Simulated scan of single mutants.
Amino acid sequence: MDGLMSTFADPPRQVAWRHKDLREGFEVVFIEPRWTVEGATTAVEDGAAFAVQYAIDLTPDWVTRGARVASFGREVQLLADGDGRWLVDGVAVPSLDGVFDVDLESSSFTNAFPVHRLALAVGETADAPAAWVRRDTLAVERLEQRYTRLPDDADGRSRFDYWSPDLSCELLYDEFGLVLDYPGIAERAAV
């Protein structure tokens, strides 16, 4: 469908990605029916191993309301009011004002949030800044991002042009609105 963005099917209960090129490893995600997502990524990047575990609470329209991210004894908690204001470990972070998504550096799954939330028609572009959680330190910072809806591919899968200050690529999504191919980073391993 090349007109308005089609409605995505309800997400599967579990999904996995194989991280490749930039890092080698896996991400596994479990999606609860009440919009809680739990996942973990374990990988090796630049010769260093890492593991990140997370739980993210979403509204039915894919707005992040909270996230707990942990790695080897460190943990960070994010709470969002749904109107674009955030607390990180209980402290207000004004630099995140206007942000509706969390994006984990270690995750391919979190690129589904703005795609679902924005419901862009083909040719539309939208800024989608995110509360970005670094995989190494769990520091939280604002990440400017932009998504442009492209025409579907020959198999009817959704395509988006993705831009951030450090990366620009085309992302391919499945019928659930989950990334199939994240060039140089990950590809879907299982649903």
Rank of each mutant, 00 (worst) to 15 (best):
R23L: 05
A9V: 12
D57A: 15
D152T: 12
D127S: 10
R23M: 13
L167R: 14
R134V: 07
V28Y: 05
D97A: 14
T110V: 13
A139M: 13
A190N: 14
S108N: 14
A40K: 11
P11S: 08
W17E: 06
P94H: 10
F100M: 09
G90C: 09
W35R: 03
E75Y: 03
V76C: 10
D97S: 11
P165R: 11
S168T: 12
F8A: 11
P129G: 04
A9W: 06
Y182K: 00
W35G: 00
E175S: 13
A80N: 06
A190V: 06
Q53H: 14
L120E: 00
S107C: 11
T137E: 14
T7C: 11
D181K: 02
H116W: 15
T125I: 05
A186N: 04
F100T: 06
G184Q: 09
A80Y: 02
D89W: 13
P33N: 11
M1N: 12
V44F: 09
D81Y: 08
G177Q: 07
P183W: 03
D21S: 13
E144C: 12
V102F: 03
V63Y: 08
Q14V: 09
T137Q: 06
L120P: 00
D174H: 08
A119K: 15
D103S: 09
G84Q: 10
Y54P: 04
L167K: 14
F26Y: 13
S6Y: 06
R85W: 02
F8L: 10
L58Q: 04
L87E: 13
T137W: 11
A70V: 08
L118D: 05
L143V: 03
A119T: 14
Y147L: 01
R157F: 09
L172Q: 01
Q77M: 10
R18S: 13
W17M: 01
V133I: 12
W132R: 05
G98T: 03
T137N: 09
V99F: 02
W86T: 02
F100G: 00
Y182A: 01
G82A: 02
T36Y: 04
G90Y: 05
V29R: 01
V28R: 10
V99A: 08
R157S: 07
Q14N: 14
G82Y: 09
A51E: 12
V44K: 12
P11D: 07
A186S: 14
P114M: 12
A40F: 09
H116G: 12
R68K: 11
E144F: 15
V63N: 05
L22C: 03
E24D: 15
M5Y: 01
V28W: 08
S6G: 14
P94A: 05
G47M: 05
P165E: 02
L104D: 00
R135S: 14
A55H: 00
V140S: 07
